[in-house]
Amino acid sequence: MEVLDHYLYTKEHEWVSIEDSIATIGITDFAQSALGDVTFIELPEVGAEVEQFEQFASIESVKAASDIYCPLSGTIVEVNTKLEENPELINKSCYHKGWIAKVEMSSPDEHSKLMTAEEYQNYLESLQ
């Protein structure tokens, strides 16, 4: 399973990439692989305010459905509308083209509650 070094992670298998005050969010390689071929994603609304670890999107494959939780509090500033027509981007490129939403962070300190790549890697191994 691919885990990118400079990203942060949650136990629910979301990733975050932080640049200035903007956090880009997606689901990890482990999550997309467990789901299988993604058929639909319900994106959050731009402008919505979310709390850390609040459910803000959901994702479906043929045989599974899963909620996606926002790793950090803030305001949704952009969503990846390409996923509406091409949900397979999540399978093909979960860390890049398959990003889900961008959040303007309101409490950047919260990232201390997230896992580093190394911690997430260990977490994945503990799940085996």
Binding site: T39, F40, E60, S61, V62, K63, A64, A65
Partner: peptide, 13 residues
């Protein structure tokens, strides 16, 4: 199709 909406996958959701 769209079985991911149904009880056997979503259970309480």
């Amino acid at each position: 199709t769209l079985q991911a909406r149904e009880q056997h996958i979503r259970r309480e959701k």
